[in-house]
Structure formats: C-alpha cells, structure tokens
Write a protein that binds this DNA or RNA. Structure first.
Lengths: 161, 161
DNA sequence: CTTGAAAAATTTAAGAA
DNA sequence: TTCTTAAATTTTTCAAG
C-alpha cells in the first residue's frame, strides 16, 4: 500500500472547501480556514504538488445544454485473462461517451457509465463495446431516469478518522 | 422538455476548457478561445448565470489521502409507489458516504455509489440502507477493484451536434 | 510554520468601436 | 457583440518573527 500524505486539521479543511468551491479565491479560503493568505496558498500549492489535489473541474449542467441520456452498462467478459481486461480497459478509454468505467467484483466485470445523445446512439456504443476486440459476452443496461444524488464530494470527514 | 441554452462555437470551447482546467486564469482561457480577457470573462459569467456551469470542484486523489473502498450497490425496492422512491432518495442524500445515486430502469431501482473506510463500515452502511424506512428488499454489491476510467468530463463535442 | 508588506499578475468595469 | 484601457483585487514572493 502506498504511503499516505499526513494531513492536519487545516489541510483537511482546505480540501473540504476546495471540493465544493473549486474556484474560491485564496483570500476567501484563507479566511475560512483561519490562516493568512500566504500560508494558505503555500499549503494549497503543497497539496497540489503532492497530488492530493489532482485537478480542478467545472461541473456542467447538461440539462441546460443539450438533449442526452445516461446509461449504466454492466459488462461481463467471457474469459478473465489479464489481457482481456487490459484490452477492454484500453478500449473504453478511447470512447468519449464512456464517461466512467470501474473494474468490479460481483455479478459482472465492468460497470460502464455512458452519456450520449439518445438511445439510437447508445445502441451504437453498445455495439462498439461488444466488438471492442475483447471477449464481451454480456451487457446489461440500466437507463438513468434521474440523477438523484450527483457526485459532488468525497466524505473526507468520515474517511479521515 | 426544458429549453436549451444556445451555444456558439466559442461557448463550447470555453466549456470544454473549463471542464478539464477548472482553475485556469481568465487570461489564459481568453487566449485559448481567441478572445480578449474581458469578453471571455463576460461569456463565462453569463454561462455561470445561466447555470450552464453549475459549480467548480477540486478533484481529490483519495489514494494519497487515506484508506478507503468504493462499492456500487444495486438496490431494489419491494414496492414501487412514488412514496417509496421519494423516501429512499431522501435518505441517501443524508448519507455522506453515498457519493452518488441514480434512479434507473432495468434489473434494479437504484444504483448507489458508496465510498467508505473499509468493508466493515460498508456493511454498516448497507444495514442503514436496508433500514432506511423504505421497503428495500435486495442489495447486490459490486466492489470496485480499480477505477479504470474516472469521470473527468462530458463528451460535449459528441453531444453538441 | 507563521505573518505582513511589497511587487507582479489577474480580474473586472467602463467607454469606444 | 467585441476590444482597449485603467482601477480594483488577487496572487505570489520574500524578509522576518
């Protein structure tokens, strides 16, 4: 297991704030965590440098932008050689409409999240997955009716002690 | 269906950049989309105001921070009255370790993503879901072995024409 | 580690095209 | 719409506690 970065309370607070307010100014952040702007910035830079903060992203509201559907596909491979996994993983990374993919244990091998224009397009993506060069034998599709709780942050307070 | 915001090429480019570089300076962004800083900022503010940009977030690298596991739970309700759905939806929103929940069609009713410290804790969360006040009759768990393709952006280029 | 002040860079508003 | 200019704000460095 990789060695973890030691975090004090202030670092935790900084990370918590940046998770939900990624574009907060350093001054406001410093105020929230009771630090001077300069030491606050130094900590943020260090967290970035140590790759505790991976990146920053704008969260778009697709509803406002275009028609789309989200599907979750449970994908099973016919064989479970390491090479079969690798090939599939490599393939999904090339598809922009596959927005997320996890390798999982349980009743299937991969859980694949797909965002595309409509059902017709989803069927095309499905075909592509079936013909990905790997031995995909089964895809069970769940259509997302409602994003009840969209991802917004990790439960830092629960995870760190 | 809600009316969509009209986007020209420049708006699309701005959104694409901000999806992957959420903390880019306005000057750099303006340069990338071939606009002056002031008109670029005006467009960004308008996209924010129109809620095309929902929010900004820091993407944390949990690996560097703590021990944790991610599980995906496929939850089925015993009955499908609207009230049963509502109750469950309300409940998962109160659990920080439930980082994402979708209401879906297919072999189950909800797909719930859970990030917690370890398996022991996962079992506790599972119990909580089973006793959520709703009629949860079945939970099938997939443990995430590897986040093959973490979510990073929507396929804007595919979705907008 | 921290603070606080100064310099550099960026954001933002206003006026003109 | 856009750009240019200039003022306000923020970031960033650095000497010192």
């Amino acid at each position: 297991m990789r060695e973890k970065r030691a975090l004090d309370r202030i670092d935790q607070n900084i990370l918590s704030v940046l998770q939900t307010e990624g574009r907060i100014t350093n001054q406001q952040l410093a105020e929230k965590v009771n630090l001077s702007p300069s030491s606050c910035l130094a900590r943020v830079r260090k967290l970035e440098e140590d790759r505790c903060i991976e990146s920053y992203h704008a969260q778009l509201n697709l509803e406002r932008l275009c028609r789309y559907i989200t599907c979750v596909a449970m994908v099973s491979l016919g064989q479970h050689r390491q090479e079969d996994f690798r090939t599939f993983e490599r393939f999904v990374k090339t598809l922009d409409e596959v927005v997320q993919c996890d390798t999982v244990s349980g009743g299937c091998d991969f859980i694949v999240r797909i965002v595309c224009a409509d059902m017709e397009r989803y069927h095309e993506v499905n075909e592509m997955l079936l013909n990905s060069g790997t031995n995909v034998v089964n895809i069970k599709t769940h259509v997302v009716m409602s994003e009840t709780k969209p991802f917004s942050k990790y439960p830092l307070d629960d995870l760190l002690q």
